[in-house]
């Protein structure tokens, strides 16, 4: 649990210096998505696309996303969607997510063990 609690902070530190939406809740798109009421059934369904790569207890080079703060997940997905954060797989995944889908996913993973 300590590791999990620490991870978001260290992940945020790694991003410090770049103008990432993940650190910036005043980013209009992030705030807009955070205001959406998340559809938990839809979130669970969408999350099954993520869990092909993101394990609850990850190994290797794919980071943990379970139990991350909702705002961090929203910010990261927005960044991938607009290309501010680069990763071939994640950009491909994120660019077909709408705002309701990002909200549902962020809610799901913030609570998923």
């Amino acid at each position: 649990m300590i590791q999990r609690a620490l991870f978001p902070a260290s992940a945020a530190l790694a991003l410090a210096g770049a103008a990432h939406a993940a650190n910036d809740l005043t980013h209009p798109e992030v705030a807009q998505i955070m205001a959406i009421e998340a559809d938990s059934d839809y979130g669970a369904y969408l999350a099954s696309e993520c869990t092909a790569c993101h394990a609850p207890n990850p190994e290797g080079g794919i980071p943990q996303i379970h139990m991350l703060p909702e705002s961090y997940i929203v910010g990261a997905l927005v960044d991938y969607r607009i290309g501010e954060r680069e990763h071939q797989v994640m950009e491909q995944i994120a660019k077909r997510l709408g705002e309701e889908e990002i909200a549902a996913l962020a809610k799901y993973f913030s609570e998923a063990e």
Partner: peptide
């Protein structure tokens, strides 16, 4: 090297899935 490490992470995740 990062891509390889991703594949290692993917293997662990998909087999858990």
């Amino acid at each position: 090297a990062q891509t390889y490490q991703e594949s290692v992470g993917w293997y662990a995740a998909i087999t858990a899935d």
